[in-house]
C-alpha cells in the first residue's frame, strides 16, 4: 500500500478519485483514441468517458466503466475537464508501455475540481511517480445526435475480418465508400485511388459476420484521413459494430477486452462526405 504513505493523498479534497491495479487498462484504451493532443474527460457515476475530435467531422469516445476501476469515487453529479492526452499517456506509461513479465503499474488518479491539475500516483516495484497534469477549460463537444431508432443498417463482425482490410486501405484514395444493403453486395468497402479502384465484399453468411441487420441500400463515402485513426481501436478490439443512420452518419463501435478480461468500448462517429451533385456545380 505505498499510496497510503503519500501524505498528499487525502481523498476528502478530491471531487474524483479512482484507482486501477493495472494502469494499462486505462492507457491501452486511451491509445485507441489518441489522434489529437487534446481530449475532453467526463466522469459520472457510470465511469469515465474520454472524447477526442477532429475537424468537426469525427469524434472518438472511449468508455471506461466504473466497474473497471478498483475504486471509483465521484462527489459531484458530473466532472468535466480537458486535458493533453499525449501528456497523460506519457505519464500513464512512465514505467514502460509494453506488457512486461513483472508486476503491473498501479494507478491512483485524483482531481480536485475546476482549475486544479489532474494528479496521478503510479507505482511499480516500490518506485512511485507523481504526475500533476494541468487541466484546461472544458470545450463543447459535438453532438452527433446518432440515435439507434434512426439506424438503417447494422453489421456486427469480428474485428479480424476488418483489420486486414483497414491495414491495406489505399491511402491515395480520398474516400472509403461503404455499401450496406439487404441485397447483394450486402457489405462492400471500396477505394478509388491512383492505381485504380479496389472493392472488398463480405458475404452475408460469412463466419466473420455475427449479425446482419440491413433494411435499406445505402452508399456513403467517408474521408479516409478521418477514418484512419480508428484503426488504432480496431487493432485492439475483438468485435466491431458498424452502423449507419438515415443521414448517412457512420458509427463504429469497438469492443475491447483488456488484460483482465473486462470489456470496454470505444466508439467513432464520422460524418459522410457530402455528395456534390451536378446541379450544385
Amino acid at each position: 500500500m505505498p499510496f497510503l504513505t503519500q501524505p498528499e493523498v487525502d481523498d476528502e479534497q478530491y471531487v474524483l478519485t479512482c484507482s486501477l491495479d493495472n494502469a494499462r487498462n486505462l492507457s491501452n484504451i486511451l491509445k485507441a483514441i489518441h489522434f489529437k493532443d487534446h481530449a475532453s474527460c467526463f466522469a459520472t457515476n457510470n465511469g469515465l468517458k474520454v472524447t477526442v475530435e477532429n475537424a468537426k467531422c469525427l469524434q472518438a469516445n472511449a468508455f471506461i466503466q466504473a466497474g473497471i476501476f478498483q475504486e471509483f469515487n465521484i462527489r459531484e453529479e458530473s466532472v468535466v475537464f480537458r486535458i493533453n492526452l499525449t501528456v497523460l499517456l506519457d505519464c500513464l506509461t512512465i514505467f514502460g508501455a509494453s506488457a512486461g513479465p513483472g508486476t503491473p503499474t498501479a494507478l491512483k488518479m485524483c482531481y480536485q475540481g475546476y482549475g486544479h491539475p489532474l494528479v496521478l500516483f503510479l507505482e511499480e516495484g516500490g518506485v512511485v511517480t507523481v504526475c500533476k497534469i494541468h487541466t484546461q477549460e472544458p470545450e463543447e463537444t459535438l453532438d452527433f445526435d446518432f440515435c439507434s431508432t434512426n439506424v438503417l443498417n447494422k453489421i456486427i463482425l469480428q474485428s479480424e475480418g476488418l483489420r486486414e482490410a483497414f491495414a491495406e486501405l489505399d491511402m491515395t484514395s480520398d474516400f472509403l465508400q461503404i455499401i450496406m444493403s439487404p441485397d447483394k453486395p450486402y457489405f462492400r468497402l471500396s477505394t478509388f485511388g491512383n492505381a485504380g479502384s479496389a472493392h472488398l465484399d463480405y458475404p452475408k453468411d460469412s463466419d466473420l459476420i455475427e449479425a446482419f441487420h440491413c433494411t435499406q441500400t445505402q452508399t456513403n463515402r467517408y474521408k479516409i484521413s478521418l477514418l484512419k485513426p480508428s484503426t488504432k481501436a480496431l487493432a485492439l478490439s475483438c468485435k466491431v459494430s458498424i452502423r449507419t443512420d438515415n443521414r448517412g452518419f457512420l458509427s463504429l463501435q469497438y469492443m475491447i477486452r483488456n488484460e483482465d478480461g473486462q470489456i470496454c468500448f470505444v466508439e467513432y462517429y464520422c460524418c459522410p462526405d457530402e455528395e456534390v451533385s451536378e446541379a450544385d456545380v
Partner: peptide, 12 residues
Amino acid sequence: TDLVSVSTHFKD
C-alpha cells in the same frame, strides 16, 4: 513544464 510536473521517487 507549463503542462505537467512529474517526479519519480526511488528508495532503498
